[in-house]
Amino acid sequence: MTQKPYDDIPGTFVFDADRSREGYWLNQFCISLRQEKNRQAFRDDPEAHMSRFAMTEDQKQAVRDRDWNRLLELGGNIYYTSKLAAFDGIVFQDLAAMMSHMSRDDYRKMMVEGGRKIEGNRYKSEWEKE
C-alpha cells in the first residue's frame, strides 16, 4: 500500500476508502445491532447472525474475541464497532479505556484532568522512542 500522509499518526486508524472497503460487511454487521430484532438474533445464535454478513474469518474471530483494536485494524469504524460494545453493555468511555489499554478508573481520571496530552502523541516516531 502506498504511504499516506496520516500513516505517521500513532495509535490511530484513519477510516479511509481502503479501510471502508475492507470493513464493509463487518461494519454492516455491527450496525445491524442498532435494531432489537437483530440484537435478539445475535443473542440467540451469534454464528448464524454473523453468517448473514460476508465477513472474513479474521473479522469474525475479532468479533468473537471482542478484540476492539483488531476490529479497527480490519476495517471496522468506531461508530460501528461501538454498537457491538453497546450490545455487550459497555459504555463508550470504558470502550475507549480498553482500546488504549488503561483501566476504567485511570482513563476516567486522565479525561477529568484534561485528557491525553498532544505532546508526545503526534508522530509514531515519538512512541517508538519509549
Binding site: 499518526i9 500513532p10 495509535g11 490511530t12 486508524f13 483494536n69 479497527l72 468506531i78 461501538s82 463508550f92 475507549a96 479505556a97 482500546m99 488504549s100 489499554h101 482513563y107 486522565m110 479525561m111 484534561g114 485528557g115 491525553r116 496530552k117 498532544i118 502523541n121
Partner: peptide, 17 residues
Amino acid sequence: MSHQLQAERAGLINAEW
C-alpha cells in the same frame, strides 16, 4: 472540538489548539 474515540490514542485533547 478535539477528541479521538478510537484505538490507542483515544482520549486525545488539545485545548491550546
